[in-house]
Structures are given as C-alpha cells and as structure tokens.
Design a protein around this nucleic acid. Structure first.
Length: 814
DNA sequence: AGCACGCCGACT
DNA sequence: GTCGGCGTGCTC
C-alpha cells in the first residue's frame, strides 16, 4: 500500500504518543496548515490537560477513535519525521512486548533534550498591553514591558537583556500583582549547533585610556589586561569573571565574538590505519557477511572468536562492504569507554565519516551527531545501546560487539535488549546482524545450535600467539599456610608472578570483582559489617573523605571508632577493596607505580582515559581495577593478570552467575600477553573446581556452554522458555509483601502453565528506604506473555505508595 | 507523570 | 477565618 499523495483532507486526526505513563494514543485535530508536514514520526506540541507537552505522531486517521471533543495540535516540532517508519514500527512492537507505555518507549529512541522544552516565563496581560499602548509605563517597568511586547520571555532572558533593572525579580512580582504581567510557559528551542564565544578588547579602544577609566574597578581592570594580551574563550575566564566581562562589554571596552566551532567528540587525531591481510579464519567469516550485505539478506551471524583473534578487523571490513553497497553501518559497543577504541580504528580506516552516540555526550553534542546521521552527512554510527535507534535510512550492516555484555539491556523505561531490537531492525532493513564475542551469551550460542544464527569461528589468535596460561590458586589452602587470622589478598604464587613480571620490565593488572566484596567495614573480632540504615547493604569506606557511604542511596556516616555490634576498637575494623588491595601491593612492591580504576576514580572526568593511556605507555606498573579493566582494552606490556577473588560473582543470587563469572574471567585473562611474550593469569578462588573457574583455565568455552546449558535445561531458565521478573517496593514492608502476593495471584490465575518463583525478598531487600519483594515467572513464551499482562494490570491496581515494575526479559535482577 | 480538585489542621 | 497538607482522579 502506498501513501496517498494528498493525505491532508482525508486524515485530519493525528494520533499522538505522549511521554506519560498512560499506554494509549491521544487524538488531536490537525490544523490544515500543519496537515501536509505532520507525518507519523514527527514531534508535535499539544495541549494536554492544563499543560502543553511534546509528543510524537504515531498515526494519521480520517476520524478520531476518541468520542469527546478533540483539541488541536499546537505546533509541529520537526519539519520531517524524527523517527522513520521502520523505527516507529519497531518501537511500537517493543513497547507492547516490554509492557512499556508507547510514549515513553518513543522518548527513549530520540536524542535526549533535543526537543524544545517548555520553561516558565512572563508575558504581558491584556491590561499590560493596554498600558504599554497608552504609554503609561515608565522607568524600569516600562523597559520590562517593552521587552515583553514581542511575546513572553523567561526570567533568565529578561535578566540578560535588562541589566539596568536593579531588582528584576521584585519588579516582576510587583507587575504581576498589579495585573500588568502574567506568568506564562514558553517554548525554549533545543540545543543549537555549537558556537564558541571569545572575549576580546573591542575594536578601536585605546588601551591606556581604558586602563585609566578602569582604575577604580580592579576586577574589570584585571580582566581587561588579560584580554589585552589576547582574545580568550569565555569558558576559560570562569564564572567569577562573568560579571566583570558583562560590565566591560556594556561599557564598550570589550566585545564577544561568536565562532562556529564544530564540536570535537573524538578528542584525539586518528591513528594510522593498519590494514592487514586477513587470516584464513577472518576471510572465511567475512565472506557470508559480505554476501548478506550485498544481497540485502537479514541473516544473523555470531562471530565467535577468542580474544585477540581479530574480530574488529572483520567488523571494519563488513562496514566497508556496506559503504561500498551505498548503505550505512551501525556498530554497538557495550559502554562508553570502549567507543574510544573502536572509534579510533574506524577513523583510521574511514576518516571522520562517523557519528558517535552515547550518554557521555552533552545534549548539544548528541543532537549534532544525531543530525549528521539524519541528514546523511556521515554513514557510520557508533555507540552504546541507544545508538541502536540511530537515524539511518538504509543500514547495510549492524554489528554488536561483545554481544554477551549485560550493558546491552536497558533497565528503565523501555526495558529492551539491544540484541533483540537490533535483530528486528536488521530484518526491516534487509541487512545482516553481526554479533561478536569470545564468550557468547548462552542465548546466542544456543540460537546457533537451533539454526537461527550462523556461527563463524575464529579459533586462533592473530600471528599464532598462544592464549595466556591460566593458573588457579586455591585460597583456602593458601590461607592454611598463613599465620592465624591473616587474610590472603595476594597469594604467594601471585606475588611470585608479579615479581617475575616486574623483573622482566612487564606490567601487571590486578582485577578485583568489587561487587559484594568492596571496602566494607568489617569487624575482625565478630565479623559484623556496618550497614546502611535504609538499604540493608554494607556501607563502603571512602578513604578520601574518611567516611562510610551507602553504595545505593548515598547515605553517609562517620567512620566508626568501634564495632557497632561487639564494641571492638577501630583497630579491628577493616575493609577489603581496591584501596586495601592498593596498600597490600605497596607494601609488597614499594617501587611499583600504581594506578587504580574503579567506580570512585571513574567519576573524575577524563581519569579513565588518562590511566589507560599511562598503562599503555608504560608509565604505570600495576593497574588495580574492577570490571572496567576487563573489557576490550589492549595493553601490550601486560605480562600478568591477577584475579583477586574469582568466586565472588558466583555467589550472586542470579541464575546467570556462572555464565557471568566465566565471561568475566575469560575477558580478564584476555588482557594478558598480547604482544610476543606469552602472558600469565593467576586466578585466586575458594572454589577451584567449579566449572566456571576450571574451564577458564582450559580456555574451553564449548565445555562451559554444554555444562551450563544442561543446568538451564534442567531448571527451565533461558534460553529454555521465557522469564518474567516483577519487583514490588514500598516503604512499609507488609505493603510490599502484600503487593507482591497480589501480583503472584494474578499471574497464577492468568497463566497456569507457568512456574512461579517467589514472591520473596529481592536480593537487595531494602533500597533507599523501600522494602522490596520480587517474583519470577518462567514458562513458554505464550503463557509468560499472559502472565505479564496480568501482572501489569494488577500492578496498576496496587494501593498508593506501592510501586511495581515488570521486566519481560530480565538480565539484572538486583 | 503532573496537575487540579477536595477536604481537614495551625497560623496571620 | 485562611494557607496548606497530600488523597484521588483525569488527561484526546
């Protein structure tokens, strides 16, 4: 069916999705002036009860489905659709599948902050207008009124434009009381393309005369001197100088010049490209992918390649093929820090013909990148999971690197998994989906067995380098050898390996899976750990501020001087974490240069990149880190990787605990020995014979897969059947428990074929002052679906203060 | 989600 | 007597 050429008179109703938790479309009348351009996928401003909100047109209709009187679309916010028909369809399906209100689903796919926003402001009332017309307002009131004649303005705008008004806020209050001015909401346009503002001495100003005139204004004089030495970006002057600058500009001594400055989201120049001859494995993997690109076939490939086998080169060649076919390419990576590496490789090969989309960009930067894709200026999109919604009209290939990574799951709003939506996008576009991993998710690997996915194996490392030797250290036995009560942080084999690495001029990465093992303040006398009063999780010691903090709600407490349970003095209180590990390493290897990478240090902007660079350049001998050191980064000088406690993740109450541990350990091990020298990996654990640990030593993914799959088959967890997770929370524990019980009953009534687990206290039974109960439902897709609908209906009927969330495809269940 | 309506306590 | 607490109900 083709779209009618003149749809306007026949379809005067716009069916609009609004970003509110009401899963329904709202009908609005389209004024004839907007009718031609207001196509599905366009954002519009509509009146909604007492306010105006931005929504997305989902459909046009000849007549309303709503019986009442229609209100009208007020304004069209996009000259052409921001969401293509394909994306709109995918999002509608996903909203349905993941039980998410349609308007919220659509909002997650559009660049945040790009839509015009409504802000508070002031406008002239009818009486105010009359007063202006009569020339009745003088002085400050007159100046304000003059600014408002053209239309309502925000207080910030007025402040910038009416410097001479002494106390603007008080004046506005007075004018409002007198009925001359009224509060208004006005549309503030979204971010604009970047301009950099430079301050300079105004043209034709005599420096000596100006200095004399500024003699009694020291701050302005200082600023003027600085500008006299050369123009300066306004941003570099700092907020304190803004007032002085304003004065200088007002007095004609300084001027501000605006310059178009395309934002640099890349940070550094592209490295030289190393286009190499493909290995036989790579060539064999690439061929069917390129065929699919050329033939517009929507096949899914699983590139299963050991660490260092050259998966990225396969991606680059596939991108190249898509561009040659006149199509575009979309690459997803699990998280922001990994975009830098893949972006460097892409720029080396394709120049700056790419856009980067991730949550680390500022709204203006993100919009700019989005628009470069939307207008077709660049053909390659790279980014984290939300880049999946990049505005490409004809993607020729979609790549998901490290496809097993749980970061591909969105855990709020539309709870999609990038993998499943990417498969739909690929199907719509007629392009291949390439999933890459050294440790594929059970789901993807199983799909390869079941036939829906074509598995392409890269079994060997580039250049025939061996995989690192993995040695397992039994912590229980190590501890027996230690003096009584002494904990083992660095076992003797790990110390020996480190010493050996340093002697050979090599580097070491120490990996501490921080989750559940962080810097808890633990009593050595009685084993008691200090807990958060609101969250039932152990508090974390922060040395920098010498305080305890809750990892979840940010509750802060002073460091205790004695154990709150048994009263033992603070000498007995200890925590183990990256900080404690750091001390241990310092005392064992005083000469080693240390760097730490974890959630605390990552908060500092640029810190992560700097540390990684220092490690690469050999300016750091030991890197101590959490999860983030495990992923993707290449450090040629690293001889030894030590895993401080491998089994911590195994104790998580999650059916994927073994899979996660295997994946994480394999990824960490892959960091060792990437150059000619073979690397060593020392894994410390209390459970050396656990299959998830043992098979890492043997680099035996296939055995792990078989064993894990048999567990899943026995328990009915994914990939066998579907899973549904509901979380009910309330400040009152009984209310949360009752709520969960009501959801459980509803699910049981709706779907007898399902197995219910719980309701039970959630793994985090209390968080931010709320008690949490959870419920798992597993079964075949149809009955889980029925249970899901029943759960959502029951969730809506829960009493006030009881919140429920339902995840139709849970990955994180904490 | 917001935002207004509505019905009961401590203040000019 | 009024300002203001948040329960509940609706949004094309």
């Amino acid at each position: 069916m083709t779209a009618p050429l003149f749809a306007t008179p026949a379809a005067p109703v716009a069916r609009v999705a609004l970003p509110v938790p009401i899963d329904r479309l709202f009908d609005y009348a389209l004024p004839p002036a907007l009718a031609a351009a207001a196509q599905p996928g366009c954002r519009v401003l509509v009146p909604f009860r007492e306010r105006r909100v931005a929504g997305v047109i989902v459909e046009r209709a000849a007549s309303p489905a709503f019986a009442g009187p229609l209100r009208s679309v007020e304004r069209l916010l996009d000259p052409e659709p921001a969401l293509s028909g394909a994306l709109l369809d995918i999002l509608r399906e996903a909203a349905e599948e993941f039980l998410c209100p349609i308007g919220i689903a659509l909002a997650t796919a559009l660049p945040a902050g790009s839509a015009p926003r409504l802000v508070r402001g002031f406008g002239l009332s009818a009486r105010g207008r009359a007063a202006v017309a009569a020339g009745a307002l003088r002085g400050e009131a007159g100046r304000i009124a003059a600014e408002l004649v053209a239309g309502p303005r925000s207080a910030a705008w007025l402040r910038a434009r009416t410097r001479e008004v002494a106390d603007l806020d008080a004046l506005l209050v007075r004018l409002e009381r007198d009925g001359l001015v009224e509060r208004a909401r006005l549309l503030q346009s979204g971010p604009r393309p970047a301009v950099s503002r430079h301050a300079e001495v105004a043209a034709g100003v005599d420096l000596a005369a100006a200095r004399q005139a500024l003699a009694r204004a020291p701050r302005q004089a200082a600023l003027f001197d600085r500008l006299a030495r050369g123009e300066t970006p306004v941003g570099e002057l700092g907020g304190a100088a803004s007032r002085a600058l304003r004065e200088l500009v007002a007095r004609g001594f300084a001027a501000i010049r605006e310059r178009e400055a395309p934002r640099d989201v890349f940070g550094e120049p592209p490295p030289a490209d190393a286009r190499v001859t493909l290995t036989a494995d790579q060539a064999a993997a690439l061929e069917p992918i390129c065929d699919a690109i050329r033939l517009r076939r929507a096949e899914t490939f699983l590139v299963h390649g050991v660490t260092g086998s050259g998966k990225t080169e396969v991606y680059l060649r596939a991108v190249d093929e898509a561009l040659r076919a006149g199509r575009q390419a979309l690459l997803l990576v699990p998280e922001i820090t990994l975009t830098h590496q893949i972006v460097a490789r892409l720029r080396a090969r394709f120049g700056d013909r790419l856009a980067v989309l991730h949550s680390g960009l500022r709204p203006g930067e993100r919009l700019e990148q989005w628009q470069r894709l939307k207008t077709g200026a660049v053909p390659i999109a790279v980014g984290a999971r939300s880049a999946l919604f990049a505005p490409l009209d004809d993607p020729g290939v979609i790549v998901i690197d490290e496809e097993h990574d749980s970061a591909y799951k969105n855990d709020e709003g539309l709870r999609y998994h990038a993998r499943s939506l990417a498969a739909r996008r690929a199907r719509r576009a007629g392009c291949p989906l390439v999933l890459g991993s050294a440790t594929p998710s059970l789901e993807s690997r199983y799909a390869a067995d079941a036939g829906g996915v074509q598995r392409l194996v890269l079994a060997r490392r580039i250049g025939g380098r061996p995989l690192p030797a993995v040695e397992i250290v039994d912590l229980a036995r190590e501890r027996e050898r230690q003096p009584r009560g002494r904990r083992v942080v660095l076992s003797s084999p790990l110390r020996a390996a480190m010493a050996e690495a340093f002697a050979a001029g090599g580097q070491v990465i120490l990996f501490l899976n921080r989750r559940g093992f962080s810097t808890r303040v633990l009593c050595f006398e009685c084993g008691h750990a200090e807990h958060c009063p609101d969250c039932d999780v152990a508090l974390v010691y922060h040395a920098a501020e010498d305080r305890l903090r809750c990892h979840y709600c940010d509750h802060a407490a002073p460091t205790p001087s004695r154990c709150s349970a048994c009263g033992a003095p603070d000498a007995a209180l200890l925590g183990i974490g990256t900080q404690r590990l750091e001390e241990e390493v310092r005392s064992a290897f005083p000469a080693a240069r240390l760097a730490r990478l974890d959630r605390d240090t990552a908060a500092r902007r640029g810190h992560t990149q700097r540390v990684l660079r220092e490690l690469r350049d050999g300016r750091v001998d030991v890197l101590i880190g959490t999860q983030m050191v495990a992923k993707g980064h290449d450090f040629p000088g690293v001889r030894v990787v030590g895993v401080i406690a491998a089994d911590i993740g195994l104790h998580m109450p999650d059916f994927r605990a073994a899979e996660r541990t295997f994946q994480l350990l394999t990824q960490v091990a892959g960091r060792a020995g990437r150059d000619a020298a073979p690397g060593r990996v020392i894994v410390q654990t209390f459970v050396p014979s656990h299959y998830a640990v043992r098979l890492v030593r043997d680099h035996d993914y296939e055995s792990f897969y078989e064993e894990e799959l048999s567990h899943r088959a026995a328990t009915g967890f994914p990939p066998f059947g579907r899973l549904l997770h509901a979380l009910v929370s309330a400040t009152d524990e009984a209310a949360a428990r009752d709520g969960a019980a009501r959801l459980a009953e509803a699910a049981a009534r709706a779907a007898q074929g399902c197995v219910q687990l719980g309701p039970a206290p959630a793994p985090l039974p209390r968080l931010r002052g709320r008690h949490r109960y959870q419920l798992l439902v597993k079964g075949d897709a149809g009955s889980v679906r029925a249970a899901a609908r029943a759960l959502v209906a029951a969730a809506e009927a829960l009493p006030d203060g009881v919140a429920a969330s339902v995840d139709a495809d849970p990955i994180h269940m904490l």
